[in-house]
């Protein structure tokens, strides 16, 4: 984020801050997913200079600090409320691009620890294949296990929403909570691949849903009932981000954002993520995503479907630098 956009975000946050509605977690006996009407549309960006250069325990510790700051900003007990009643939570990591542009195992480690701290019994990190996970540096660690859908397969029920009809990964179906752990990155067809686009990794037939810049398909995938019911949190690893040439890693278009983005509202998270990528594209004098014929219109579609808040002026953005 450059200074201009940082200031823009802050003033935007100030503008709508008065209307901020704190998250109230579950409703009644059944935990609500992130995609429920009462979801708080605050997006928190926490940055730490040099994050992308850290290794090992130092990096895990840094992520823990960033996450604590993020959840503190969202409301001190927000995470506990959000995952209340959920015993098994899966972190769906987007590891398509290999280690340089996949969520960091250290972020997963820190997040897993925090989830366990608030009562979650089991945390898994999963992706389409074990190979993708291992290529991204994931190994089974003390606080989480790793699962490739290639090892556990897909369920046998075709879930449908709108134009989408898909089988879902058993890694998803065998958990009762889902965190989308994506990257802040460009996508050649969808415009961006951050929170919601990452959910294509839950279905067996993602190749069927890339026409028309993935609109409305991204929204329809996110609204498949087992996903909608489980998605409780969105986290983007923005240590390294990429503004063009995605979804694979292209060093020429990557930059150290040195932060994370956290929200309970996946649509709001993607709205802000898209803005951040557009800002970086402007800095590099790249055309806008619209001019590049790949605007992420599915964000608006998702908002209109009630999956979250797509309107920029209705989203509260908090940026913290630690």
């Amino acid at each position: 984020m450059n200074r201009r956009s940082f200031v823009h975000s802050l003033s935007s946050a100030a503008l709508v801050g008065a209307f901020h509605v704190p998250c109230d977690g579950g409703t009644g006996g059944r935990p609500s997913g992130a995609l429920s009407p009462d979801t708080d549309s605050t997006v928190v960006i926490v940055r730490r200079v040099g994050l992308s250069q850290l290794k090992g325990d130092g990096r895990t510790g840094a992520y823990r600090t960033l996450l604590e700051e993020a959840f503190s900003t969202l409301g001190k007990t927000s995470l506990a409320q959000r995952v209340s009643g959920r015993n098994t939570i899966g972190l769906k990591a987007n590891c398509l691009a290999g280690r340089p542009l996949s969520p960091s195992p250290e972020l997963a480690q820190a997040l897993s620890g925090m989830l366990r701290d608030v009562g979650v019994r089991e945390v898994t990190v999963w992706e389409r294949t074990m190979r993708e996970l291992t290529r991204a540096g994931f190994t089974a660690r003390g606080s989480f296990t790793i699962i490739g859908t290639d090892a556990v397969g897909y369920g046998r029920t075709i879930y449908e929403s709108g134009d989408v009809g898909s089988l879902l990964s058993n890694a998803l179906l065998n958990s009762d909570g889902l965190v989308s752990v994506g990257m802040l990155k460009d996508h050649d067809l969808a415009g961006i691949s951050c929170v919601l686009k990452n959910l294509y990794g839950t279905i067996h037939n993602p190749n069927k849903y890339h026409d028309y810049n993935c609109n409305p398909y991204v929204a329809h995938v996110a609204s498949l009932p087992p996903i909608r019911e489980r998605l409780v949190l969105s986290v983007l690893d923005c240590a390294t981000a990429q503004c063009h040439g995605g979804p694979s890693y292209k060093p020429a278009w990557a930059w150290p954002f040195d932060g994370i983005l956290v929200s309970f509202d996946p649509v709001a998270a993607d709205r802000i993520a898209a803005d951040l990528i557009e800002d970086q594209r402007a800095i590099r004098e790249l055309p806008t995503l619209e001019a590049d014929r790949r605007p992420p219109r599915w964000i608006e579609t998702a908002g209109l479907m009630g999956l979250g808040e797509h309107r920029r002026d209705a989203i509260t953005v908090r940026e913290v630098i630690v």
Partner: peptide
């Protein structure tokens, strides 16, 4: 079908 997905995703495997 669906219960097994034995192969990694990438062509170079």
């Amino acid at each position: 079908l669906a219960g097994l997905a034995a192969a990694p995703a990438f062509a170079g495997d």
